[in-house]
Design a protein around this nucleic acid. Structure first.
Length: 673
DNA sequence: GCTTTCGTG
C-alpha cells in the first residue's frame, strides 16, 4: 500500500481558482458601496485582510463621527482578540483605546474605543439592553457563511433594526458560495412589512485576497478505507513531493490517534536513524501543551504531518503547510425534535468545507490538496452544511428572542427558518419550565431571568429554584462545572485507568453533579494555587479556572436579580456534599431535589438489565462510561445531556432522584404518569 | 467501555 504511486492514484481538478490580489486596491469601491447601499456583502478569502483592513478604512472615512462605534463580530473568542490586537498595532494605539475587543469575561474597551471587535453572541446580548444597537454606525458580521446560530440571529435582528435605523450600515463577510443567499435575504421584505425606500438594499463586492495557487487532486477510484488511504497518501507525499508540512483532516480523536500511531510505525526505518516524518495529533480535547507542538517548526531534515479534526479548518491556523489531505468527512451534531435526543454522526463534508480545507495548503506558498474521494463524489456534495439553527435544540434561542421582544418566533425573519417541530418542542419545554405562560409570553421575573443567565434553560431553572431548596451556592458551582461539557478532567491517551481512579476520589454515591461539586470545592480550597494538585488529580487547570469565572459571573447575575448568595456556608467545606460525610444527607438531598426541579424533562429509570428508559418512549439509554453511575445500580435519575453516537445512546452527568419528586416539582408535566 | 466544533457583562 505504501508503494502506491501518487501520480497514478490522483488526477488533477478541471478548474483552478484565479490568482488573487491585495485588498487595498478595492478601498474606494468598498467605501462607495457602504456609503450608497445599506447592506454590503463582502466576499474575501481568509487572509485577504478584510477583517483587519475594512474597519480601518471605515474609521478613516469618518464613520466614527459623533462618537459612534464600528462593531465587527467574530464567531470565536480567539479571533476577536487576535484581530483586535493586530488592528490596534496597525492603528498605533494600545488595545482597549481607539481599538478594543469584548468577549465573555473580558471587556477591553474604553470611552475612546471606536473600532470594537466582539463575538457575535455577545452582540446579540447587547441587543437585550440596547435593542437598536444605537451606539454602532456600522456593524460587520465576519465569517457569516459559517452560519452559527448567533450570527444567523444577529442577521435577522439587523434586518429588523435597519427599518428603524435606515442610517445603520451592515457589512456581511462571506465565502463566495453563500454570498448570493445573504444578498437575497436582505433584499426580501421580511415578515414585518415593507422595507424603506426604493433601490437595491444589498450589494456584493469581491475583495481578492493574496493567496497562493493550490492544485486540487482527486482519487481515480473511491478509497475502501479512508483512514488507511490517508496514511498511505501521507507516506507517498513524503517520499515523492518537495518540502512543506502536511495537514490531514480526519473526523475525531480515535481516528487521529490511530493515524499518528500508524505513521510512526510505518515511517520508522530500523537502524536508519530518527524518522524524518513527525506525526502530531490536533483536536480540541488535547491539552494545551500538546497542542503547542503543532505550531513549532519541524526539526531540520524533518517533515511535520498534523492529523486534525475540523478545528484546523477555521479555528486554528498552522503555518508552513504545503499539502492538505482531506478524507472528506466530518462529525455533525444534530437534534431530533421528536425524541429530544442529539446525535453525533460522521457525514460527508460540504463543498464549502472542502474549499476551506484545501485553502489551508496555500497560506505561505503554493500548495496541493489531495482529496480522498473522486471528483464525481465531490460534485455530488452539498454546497454547504445545513445551518446550525436547523439542527439544534432551540430552547435557548426562543428564550433569547422572547427576551428581545420578539413574541411571535414563528414569524421571526430567519435566514433559513428552522423546522416547525424544533420551534414547537422548544416552546413546549419553556412552558413546562415556567419561562412562558399559556399565551407563550415570557413570564416575569422567572422567564426573563432565565433568558439573562448564560446557561441553558433547564439549568437556569434549577439555579433560580435553588434558594428555595437552600443550595444556591452549590448549584452555582454545579452549573459552572456542567458548562465545561466534560472538560474538567484531562484525558490522557493510554491513561484511562489512572483518570478513572482520579475521578473516583471525588465520586459521590448520588451521581455526577455532586462529584463535580466535590472536585470544584477541592480545587477551590487546595488546587487554585498548586499546579500539582491538578496534575495529581488529572484535573484540567484551564477548564477549572474557567469554571471559577463562570461561577463568579452567574453569581453576579443572581445578585443583580436581588437574590443574595451566601458563599461562606459552602466555602472551604470540600466534603459537605458527599454522602459519607456526617450530617451531609440533607444538603445532598436539597441539591438532588433542586436538580429535579430543573431537569424533570430529562428523567429516566434504570431497568433490570442496567440500561435506562425515559419516562415516555422506549429509547434504550446507556449511562456514559465517564459517569460515576456507569455499572452501578440506580432507580430514577435525571441527567444533563443525551447524545447518540454510533449505535448507542448515552446519558451524561447523571444524578439519582426519587420518583415522587417528579410529581412534586412538575405535576403538570407528569400528571398522566 | 467513551466528544466534531464553537459560544452568552
Amino acid at each position: 500500500m505504501a508503494d502506491l504511486d501518487l501520480g497514478a492514484a490522483f488526477i488533477p481538478a478541471l478548474h483552478k481558482p484565479a490568482a488573487l490580489l491585495p485588498i487595498a486596491k478595492h478601498r474606494e469601491a468598498l467605501l462607495y458601496l457602504v456609503e450608497t447601499s445599506p447592506v454590503t456583502i463582502v466576499i474575501g478569502q481568509t487572509g485577504s485582510g478584510k477583517s483587519t483592513q475594512i474597519p480601518q478604512f471605515l474609521e478613516q472615512a469618518g464613520w466614527c463621527a459623533d462618537g459612534k462605534v464600528i462593531g465587527i463580530t467574530q464567531p470565536r473568542r480567539v479571533a476577536a482578540t487576535t484581530v483586535a490586537i493586530r488592528v490596534a498595532e496597525e492603528y498605533g494605539c494600545e488595545v482597549g483605546q481607539e481599538v478594543g475587543y469584548s468577549i465573555r469575561f473580558e471587556d477591553v474597551t474604553s470611552e475612546r474605543t471606536r473600532i470594537k471587535f466582539l463575538t457575535d453572541g455577545l452582540l446579540v446580548r447587547e441587543a437585550l439592553v440596547d435593542p437598536l444597537l444605537s451606539r454602532y454606525s456600522v456593524i460587520m458580521v465576519d465569517e457569516a457563511h459559517e452560519r452559527s446560530v448567533s450570527s444567523d440571529i444577529l442577521l435577522g435582528l439587523l434586518k429588523k433594526i435597519r427599518r428603524k435605523r435606515p442610517e445603520l450600515r451592515i457589512i456581511v463577510s462571506s465565502a463566495t458560495l453563500q454570498a448570493e443567499g445573504f444578498r437575497r435575504f436582505f433584499e426580501e421584505t421580511g415578515g414585518d412589512g415593507p422595507g424603506p425606500g426604493p433601490g437595491p438594499v444589498a450589494s456584493i463586492i469581491s475583495l481578492e485576497g493574496r493567496t497562493h495557487p493550490i492544485d486540487v487532486l482527486y482519487l481515480e477510484k473511491p478509497a475502501e478505507d479512508y483512514l488507511d488511504k490517508a496514511v498511505s497518501t501521507v507516506l507517498d507525499i513524503h517520499a515523492s513531493e518537495g518540502p512543506g508540512d502536511i495537514l490531514v483532516f480526519l473526523t475525531g480523536r480515535d481516528e487521529i490517534e490511530q493515524a499518528v500511531q500508524a505513521v510512526s510505525e510505518r515511517s520508522a526505518r530500523p537502524g536508519a536513524g530518527p524518522p524524518s516524518l513527525l506525526p502530531l495529533p490536533l483536536y480540541a480535547g488535547l491539552h494545551a501543551d500538546q497542542q503547542m507542538y503543532v505550531f513549532e517548526p519541524a526539526p531540520a531534515g524533518c517533515r511535520k504531518v498534523v492529523f486534525a479534526t475540523n478545528i484546523a479548518e477555521a479555528s486554528v491556523t498552522i503555518d508552513g503547510v504545503a499539502y492538505v489531505v482531506d478524507a472528506g468527512f466530518v462529525k455533525v451534531r444534530a437534534y431530533n425534535p421528536q425524541t429530544g435526543i442529539e446525535s453525533l454522526t460522521t457525514t460527508p463534508v460540504s463543498k464549502a468545507s472542502a474549499a476551506q480545507r484545501a485553502g489551508r495548503a496555500g497560506r505561505t506558498r503554493p500548495g496541493k490538496c489531495f482529496r480522498l474521494y473522486t471528483e464525481e463524489a465531490y460534485l455530488a456534495l452539498p454546497d454547504a452544511a445545513a445551518p446550525e439553527v436547523q439542527r439544534t435544540n432551540l430552547a435557548p434561542v426562543v428564550l433569547q428572542l422572547k427576551a428581545l421582544g420578539i413574541d411571535n418566533v414563528l414569524r421571526f425573519d430567519f435566514l433559513t427558518p428552522p423546522p416547525a417541530e424544533l420551534l414547537a418542542r422548544a416552546l413546549e419545554l419553556l412552558y413546562a419550565l415556567g419561562a412562558l405562560d399559556e399565551y407563550a409570553k415570557l413570564t416575569r421575573p422567572l422567564g426573563l431571568r432565565m433568558a439573562e443567565l448564560a446557561v441553558e434553560p433547564m439549568m437556569a431553572k434549577a439555579l433560580l429554584a435553588a434558594p428555595g431548596f437552600g443550595c444556591l451556592g452549590e448549584m452555582l458551582t454545579i452549573a459552572a462545572m456542567t458548562s465545561l461539557g466534560g472538560g474538567a478532567w484531562v484525558q490522557h491517551e493510554g491513561e484511562r485507568k489512572r483518570s478513572e481512579s482520579a475521578r473516583r476520589r471525588f465520586a459521590a454515591d448520588e451521581g455526577d453533579h455532586l462529584t463535580l461539586l466535590n472536585a470544584y470545592q477541592a480545587f477551590a480550597t487546595r488546587g487554585r494555587k498548586e499546579a500539582r494538585f491538578c496534575q495529581e488529580n488529572l484535573l484540567n487547570f484551564k477548564a477549572m479556572a474557567r469554571a471559577v469565572s463562570i461561577r463568579a459571573q452567574l453569581k453576579r447575575y443572581l445578585e443583580r436579580f436581588g437574590i443574595p448568595v451566601d458563599d461562606a456556608e459552602t466555602r472551604g467545606s470540600s466534603s459537605t456534599a458527599t454522602a459519607t460525610a456526617p450530617g451531609s444527607q440533607s444538603k445532598a438531598e436539597q441539591i438532588r431535589r433542586c436538580l429535579t426541579a430543573g431537569y424533570f424533562a430529562h428523567a429516566a429509570r434504570m431497568q433490570p438489565d442496567g440500561t435506562f428508559r425515559p419516562v415516555s418512549g422506549s429509547t434504550v439509554l446507556h449511562a456514559h462510561p465517564s459517569s460515576v453511575l456507569f455499572n452501578r445500580k440506580a432507580d430514577w435519575v435525571v441527567f444533563h445531556e443525551v447524545v447518540e453516537t454510533g449505535d448507542k445512546t448515552f446519558i451524561r452527568d447523571i444524578t439519582k432522584i426519587e420518583k415522587s419528586w417528579l410529581l412534586e416539582y412538575a405535576p403538570e408535566y407528569y400528571k398522566a404518569g
